[in-house]
Computed example of a mutant assay.
Amino acid sequence: MRRLGGRRQGVNELVHLLQLDEHQRRQWLDRRQPAAHERANWWLYLLLVIDQHLRDQSGRRADWAELKLWLLRQGRARGVFSEADSAEKLAYFAADTRRAGVELAVLPPADDIVRGCLDAIPVGLNEVAMLVGRRGLGGLDRTRMRHSRQAKKLVSAAQWHLDDVLDPHLAAQLREWIDIKPRLV
């Protein structure tokens, strides 16, 4: 896997990225994109390095959090992460950021986060595969199991934001998913 050029240099490059404007950041990403088969791991590495900075309790936590949010959005826009992966990563990132006491004006509201997660579920509430009683997975095909598992992951990510959702219809929709979550694959 192609790294940023060594751990120390990679960290230094990300520190430099904090100083750049939107256009310069995009150029930075354009110049460093690895081969297609390495892209996802490269992006995940960037996010991991940022997570390490977020844990260090430095005075720049807000800057690092804002950079991570920007990279998550860029990863989705550039097709590195799927809609579902992006929604899940954003939901957990926003919850972790708020729990850590880092208030960012750029974080999307809970309604947008929950809506993104629910919209990324590939099947409807009445179509999702659920376990019934003691019946195992034998009767489910792979696609239905994968969709059910994806629904479970997205609901788990979204439920961290339930208390902050303002739209009562959206909150009720999330509660319905939470109610069936134990029966999802």
Results as ranks from 00 to 15, higher is better:
Q159N: 04
V106C: 09
G136T: 14
Q150W: 04
L131H: 07
R146N: 11
L154H: 05
L137Q: 08
H169Y: 03
R115M: 10
P122I: 00
M145A: 11
G136S: 14
V165I: 11
S156W: 05
Q159K: 15
R115N: 09
A120M: 05
L137N: 07
P168D: 13
R146Y: 03
V165M: 09
N126K: 13
L137Y: 12
G133I: 04
C117Y: 04
R144N: 00
L166G: 12
Y92W: 15
N126L: 05
G136L: 13
L140R: 06
A120V: 11
A105C: 01
D119A: 15
A151V: 09
R144Q: 13
K152E: 07
N126G: 02
R144H: 10
R142C: 02
L140W: 13
L166K: 15
P168K: 07
A157C: 07
R98L: 14
P122L: 04
A129Y: 06
V165N: 10
A172Y: 01
D119M: 03
G124Y: 00
G116S: 14
L107C: 05
Y92D: 06
S156E: 14
H161Q: 11
R98F: 01
L170T: 11
A158I: 06
A158W: 08
G139N: 11
D167R: 10
D119L: 06
D96L: 04
V102F: 03
L140V: 06
M130P: 00
D141H: 08
V132A: 10
D164S: 13
I121K: 12
A95M: 00
V132H: 12
V155K: 02
A94L: 03
D111Y: 08
D96E: 15
A95P: 06
D111S: 07
D141R: 09
A129G: 12
A157N: 09
R115F: 03
A151Y: 05
T143D: 10
P108C: 05
G139I: 02
P109A: 12
A120I: 11
V102G: 03
D111K: 06
R146E: 06
D164Y: 01
K152Y: 10
V106K: 10
F93W: 01
V128P: 03
D141V: 02
R135D: 13
L170Q: 08
R149A: 14
P122R: 15
L118T: 13
L118N: 05
L125P: 10
M130N: 04
V123E: 08
I121Y: 10
G101Y: 11
M130T: 14
R175Y: 04
E127Q: 15
D119K: 13
A95V: 05
T97L: 13
R149T: 12
D141A: 02
R99W: 05
L118R: 09
D167H: 00
R134Y: 10
L137W: 09
D119Y: 00
D163I: 00
A171K: 14
R144A: 14
G116L: 00
L131E: 08
Q173E: 14
L162T: 03
V106N: 01
H169A: 15
G101F: 11
H147N: 14
R149K: 07
L107T: 02
L118M: 06
V155Y: 00
N126Y: 04
D141Q: 08
G101R: 15
Q159M: 13
R175K: 15
V102D: 04
R175H: 08
H147W: 09
D163P: 01
A157Q: 01
L118K: 07
V155E: 06
A100V: 03
D111L: 02
V102W: 12
T143Y: 00
P109T: 05
N126E: 13
E127C: 01
